[in-house]
Write a protein that binds this DNA or RNA. Structure first.
Lengths: 211, 211
DNA sequence: TTGCACCGTGTCACTTAGTGACGTACTGTC
DNA sequence: GACAGTACGTCACTAAGTGACACGGTGCAA
């Protein structure tokens, strides 16, 4: 089974699981229900996810993987702000890599919101960002010309990941609370916020162009 | 049941659970086994812990709570380094507040190590630091004279917590790998490391004395 | 001392998350 | 068109966790 196909299936399951979690709560939705919602056997669900909560991971990861992909292509010569704005506008304009479905983004925000009160989902959310942290390690290690498991690199990566996570939580909460969504569609403004978060969380070490 | 008594019981359960997790792996130890090890009924275990993995939380939190307590008493006029060194030496000398049993510290490190390979324990470890993050929010918010749920405060808190976590992971791994333990008994050196971690993770905003 | 209320724990029955074993059907390849 | 690989379904099973209720200890008032 191709990596892509597997990812798509996981996402599809995740979508239905998230919807059910939101509509009736995590505890109240059973594995059987999720299985039925995606027309699969329950056994197959557990073959693709190690636990019920982790069914939420793909949907919350979706928005994050774009950011990660963008960061991976960050050239040494440009600043974080510049790179984010150019790449994000490119993604927004040329739809060849459809960033993320809007409904999916809403679903992700709902999961983050649920994670506030449901410890089971909180673990899933934190585990998702644990992945982000690992990805950050190689990105930052690469930029600082140090091994990815270097202590300082790991600390910077952890800080950056945590800052991004909190920013994401904040945005999600704001949108769900009915805030003006247009402020999050301004690519330059959003880029600046993420860049600023990463900069300060790494003590200014990550953000500037490097030789 | 007094808060303290409840905490002590949780810690006792956690101790045995951690020992079993380390000796035979998480999957291989059952709730019944943990219960038997502390001479309680299985039902009582689930009354004190929401899941098997979370049994590890108190033991890994133990070392962290000292740091948190110390941070809570951080006076505005002193720098982070100074306060940490003075408080930690005071703790080390005056044993009236027994910091943490050495065996417990070793156990905690083992759990952190296990968390590297066992996703179930990783969630517990991350959840423990989620608590740290919340505590950091009020400490930093207080210091910056802002509400604890302010976005910037939360980002700084998240960064600081993450940095401390990685440092803790690093120290744990080093000790278990047989590194020279004496370098971690030098209070000033350790204080400097933690202070430096928090400083850079907060972009230098948290660390200096404030008016 | 008796009586009462409270609460932490044990017992037992029950639900459900998650796994192992095996059969089947689909897919691509020679 | 036979064959290997593998994703999925079925079924039986283990174990994590919960609900309901009974028991026993502690504190307090009469």
């Amino acid at each position: 089974m191709s990596e892509q196909r597997r990812a798509r299936l996981r996402l599809e399951i995740s979508r239905e699981a998230a919807r059910l979690f939101w509509e009736q709560g995590v505890a109240a939705t059973s594995g059987d229900q999720i299985a039925e919602a995606v027309s699969l056997s329950t056994r197959t669900i557990w073959r693709h996810f190690r636990s019920k909560e982790s069914c939420a991971e793909p949907i919350v990861m979706q928005g994050v993987v774009t950011l990660m992909t963008v960061l991976r292509s960050w050239p040494r010569r440009s600043s974080l702000e510049d790179h984010l704005t150019t790449e994000l506008t490119r993604l927004r304009l040329g739809h060849q890599t459809p960033p993320v479905d809007l409904a999916d983004e809403m679903l992700a925000m709902k999961m983050i919101r649920l994670a506030d009160t449901e410890p089971a989902l909180r673990t899933a959310w934190l585990m998702a960002y644990d992945q982000v942290e690992r990805a950050m390690c190689v990105i930052i290690g690469d930029r600082l010309e140090r091994p990815a498991d270097d202590l300082e690199v790991r600390m910077h990566a952890a800080g950056a990941a945590a800052a991004v996570r909190v920013l994401e939580e904040h945005i999600g909460a704001a949108v769900l609370a009915g805030a003006d969504v247009t402020q999050f569609t301004d690519v330059t403004a959003v880029s600046r916020r993420f860049a600023h978060a990463i900069r300060t969380a790494t003590g200014g070490v990550v953000g500037d162009p490097v030789a």
